[in-house]
C-alpha cells in the first residue's frame, strides 16, 4: 500500500520536529552546554523569557537592581558559543541560540542594536567577576 511509506515519513518528521523543540537549541560549545538547567525551568524559559527580560530591564535601569538570573548580559555569557578558534560567535548570528529560535518563531527584536552580542572576553565587569579595588570609592 502506498500510504504506509507516507505514514512512516510523517511520523519521522513530527518526531524530528519535537526533538528540535525539546531543547536542541543549546549549542555545543557554550557554557550552557555543560549545564543541565537554565535560570528557570526550561519549559518556563521557552515561553516566558521575554517577560523576565523586560521586567529585569526596568528593575535594573530604574531601580539599580543588578541580580544576575534574569540579566540579558548573563543570558549571553552562558548561551554564546565559541567557534573552533575559541572566539565567541554573536548570539544573534545565523544559527546561534537566540537567533535560530527567533527565526523559526518569526520573532524580530531590536535588543541587539544596542546590547552586546558576545560576552566580555576580559570579563571585566560582566557582573560575574569584579574584584578590582577602587581607591576613591566613598560609600
Amino acid at each position: 500500500m502506498a500510504i504506509v511509506p507516507w505514514l512512516i515519513l510523517m511520523t519521522a518528521l513530527s518526531l524530528l520536529a519535537s526533538v528540535e523543540l525539546a531543547g536542541a537549541q543549546v549549542l555545543g560549545n557554550s557554557r550552557a552546554a555543560e549545564l543541565d538547567q537554565c535560570v528557570e525551568p526550561t519549559e518556563f524559559m521557552r515561553r516566558n523569557h521575554m517577560e523576565l527580560l523586560i521586567h529585569q530591564r526596568d528593575e535594573t535601569v530604574h531601580r539599580g537592581i543588578r541580580t544576575k538570573n534574569h540579566s540579558l548580559v548573563e543570558c549571553i555569557a552562558c548561551h554564546a558559543e565559541k567557534d573552533s578558534d575559541g572566539q565567541f560567535v554573536s548570539i544573534n548570528a545565523e544559527g546561534q541560540f537566540c537567533q535560530d529560535c527567533h527565526v523559526t518563531a518569526a520573532v524580530s527584536m531590536d535588543c541587539f542594536q544596542c546590547h552586546a552580542t558576545k560576552p566580555d572576553v576580559n570579563a571585566q565587569l560582566t557582573g560575574l567577576a569584579i574584584a578590582m579595588t577602587r581607591p576613591n570609592c566613598q560609600r
Binding site: Q113, C114, L125, R134, Q138
Partner: peptide, 22 residues
C-alpha cells in the same frame, strides 16, 4: 549598551557604582 537613534550622557558609571566602585 548603545545604539543609533538614542541620546546618551554620563551615567556616573552607574554599572560600577551599583557594585560599589567609583
Amino acid at each position: 549598551p548603545r545604539g543609533k537613534g538614542t541620546v546618551e550622557s554620563c551615567t556616573f558609571c552607574v554599572h560600577r557604582v551599583d557594585r560599589d566602585h567609583t
